[in-house]
């Protein structure tokens, strides 16, 4: 059944309320510094030595790093589900995010676990063939505390019956 594959589903096949725990990642100091040097060069994010005497008392992950890793975990998860599918990719681009909050600092060695839930599907049709699916995405650290939350609108191809 091809509709078992997340990446391969039509817009109409994606159920509101679907919930997945789709990946975890442990953030190392090295990767935090490498990301920050390119995108958030402040010492709180890019300089472990200097960060010790700054406002968080140690290095913290730059906020977009947590979102970039969300994307990686999502791509990996979709690929696993899509194994054996001969490019049935029906997920399109992300178009917008809403209500993004970074709730607690993420420090070297912290492990985030990412979840998503489909919360709504728009009636709007984009460029004749795409529907818009909104999901709520969250990440929790190893203590179970929520550290990241946002909603994202992603295009999904509409079936021929639409």
């Amino acid at each position: 059944m091809s509709d078992l594959y997340l990446r391969n589903r039509w817009f109409e096949d994606i159920p509101v309320g679907e919930f997945h725990v789709f990946g975890s990642h442990t953030f190392s100091e090295l990767e935090m510094v490498e990301f920050a040097r390119q995108f958030a060069p402040g010492p709180e994010f890019a300089d472990p030595e200097a960060a010790r005497s700054l406002r968080w008392g140690g290095l913290v992950a730059s906020p977009w790093h947590l979102c970039a890793m969300w994307m990686r975990k999502m791509v990996d998860y979709m690929e696993v589900y899509a194994q054996g599918v001969n490019d049935g990719r029906r997920n399109g681009a992300g178009v917008a995010i809403h209500d993004l909050d970074w709730l607690e600092p993420v420090r070297p060695g912290h492990t985030l676990t990412y979840t998503y839930e489909i919360i709504s599907k728009s009636d709007k049709v984009v460029r004749d063939r795409w529907g818009v699916v909104r999901s709520r995405n969250e990440a929790f650290n190893q203590y179970g505390n929520k550290v990241l939350t946002f909603e994202i609108d992603i295009l999904a191809e509409r079936g021929e019956s639409a």
Binding site: G42, E44, A96
Partner: peptide
Amino acid sequence: GEALREAGMTYITTTHVDSMRW
């Protein structure tokens, strides 16, 4: 962040995004 610092404001980080559209 760099533009704010140029203008004399000490930007630290982005804390919340109401919306971002690509």
